[in-house]
Amino acid sequence: MNRSLTERLWAAALWLLVGFFILNLTALIATVITSSFATRWLGTWFPADFTTRWYFSAWDEFQLGDVLIVTFEVVFAVVVLAGLLGVPAAYAMARRNFPGKKLLMLLFLLPLLVPPITYGIPMATVLYKTGLGGTLAGVILANLVPTVPFVILVMIPFIEQIDPRIEAAARVFGAGTLRLFIYVLLPILTPGVLAALLLVLVRTIGMFELTFLTAGPTSQTLVVALYYAVFAAGVRAVQSIDAMAVIYMATTLVWLLIALRFVNPTQIVARAKQAR
């Protein structure tokens, strides 16, 4: 009896903690959204009145049209290139054993383990020396550094669980490498590739450090533009920065919701476990 009471108290305390965290998180996001629709919000629980005009002023002030185009160009290029570089490499890693494989695995793990700001500064230095710094190409290259290994590490276990006899059977029936790829591998791999690339997409929209270090004035993505807006707060109305934050949230969350239909939320974090 006594033990079950302490156990219940312990459980209640833990759920209270989780509830407190989620409550604050939700309230924090709600603050941003409410403020973006507020006419004036000073010293009260709720704003005086609501309006949508901040969205129009934010769109003009921050050139959000251009920023969004750059964001989608970067994200699209990163997703396609990460897939093209990562999936074949993952296939080779899953199917072949060769000397130096462990070393190669380390090469693919390191960019995910070392935080972006640590390797980003020497990388940005190299990119600026070669003239790629500050350009769209530089931002795309920088963002590929963590995403290519990410695709590889997500795809290796997925490819490993495909029975290699399927490919052998196709070979027996006389399929060449190209036909094998188009008719056998592609259909089987599509769900896994789709999931991996959606995760890459969500991560690239939110990737701040690498883009921040390599972007010039014309190659800023949404999250970097948001940083500069918050950094220079005071120049612009708070509500218009909040409107921009809501636009950023919307672009991220749409893709997150789509991604979550195909993957488990823990997959966004727990890549280290799969990498074993």
Binding site: L25, F208, Y227, T252, L253
Partner: peptide
Amino acid sequence: PITLGTVL
């Protein structure tokens, strides 16, 4: 919060 990122 992980996907929205530290800036937001």
